[in-house]
Amino acid sequence: MERHDVAIVGGGPAGLAAALRLVELGIKDVVVLEREAEAGGIPRHCGHMGFGWQSHRRLWTGPRFAAQLRADTSSLDVRTGTTVLELGPEGHLRIRDSQGARHMIANRVLIATGTRETPRAARLVGGTRPQGVMTTGALQQHVYLNHRRPFDRPVIVGSEWVSFSVLVTCLHLGVRPVAMIEENAATTAPRAGRLVARLAFGVPVLTATRLIAIDGRGQVEAVEVEHGGQRRRIACDGVVFTGQFRPENALYMTGPFASDDLAPRIDSAFRCTDPAFFAAGNVLRPLKSSGTCWRQGLAAAAAIAGSML
């Protein structure tokens, strides 16, 4: 069976940073397992600026940052198109790639599977199921990876920082959102964001407003919202559910260590309750920037190297 010193699950900023640092620390046999066709993680489809400062002291777009990460790790064993299906005791992994499924064992496994947003279904938003309902991540991939424009007048649900990045994406597309809807009395991101939304983008931010239902047959036609006990319809042709990030948990939930759907349990050195397993990056809450994930990957690598002495 294939054996390695360290297997890193996930080739985003945390996983790639950990791989680089482990090699620097003298651990040569490190493999990164990435299920997508290219490594780089979420920054691959974040088209706006603001990436790279903590790692490279440069300011790049997400795709540029992701490309840099791939260049930095080009001499490492980064395997794309490789999915880890299941974790087992003592660093056991069941993986599959274009050759099929097989088993692998690593002395240490770093889980860096990242995060995703909570989609419409998990928020139990009623109504019909037309086209044009998506998360930020899906929108960004439509736009930056496939150059598609899925709607012209969407409603944005949420007011976290990522919600404002949707505004940037919409601007890039020439799309004018109809409104941002926030269930709480105040926006989740700082007040500045609200001003930016209204002044720079001309998009009203409706706080204390709850999305009740989505309506439409082929494409979205309207949303129904509630504010102060009053319900009303807002005509639109798309809905973007932003934020409410939750860990990509399907893999670690199979692992032989303590976890729940919101996180694997770790100690202060990123170690799970099974000593072969560690976790770092956005699979651990709270949501962090790519730079912070990068630094956490470095720290986890140091912890893993220390544990192997």
Binding site: R116, P119, A121, M134, T135, G137, A138, H142, L145, E248
Partner: peptide
């Protein structure tokens, strides 16, 4: 699945 297209809807559409 659980992500309801966060990762793949763009590629499936393509």
């Amino acid at each position: 699945g659980r992500c309801q297209g966060f990762y793949c809807s763009a590629e499936v559409t393509a």
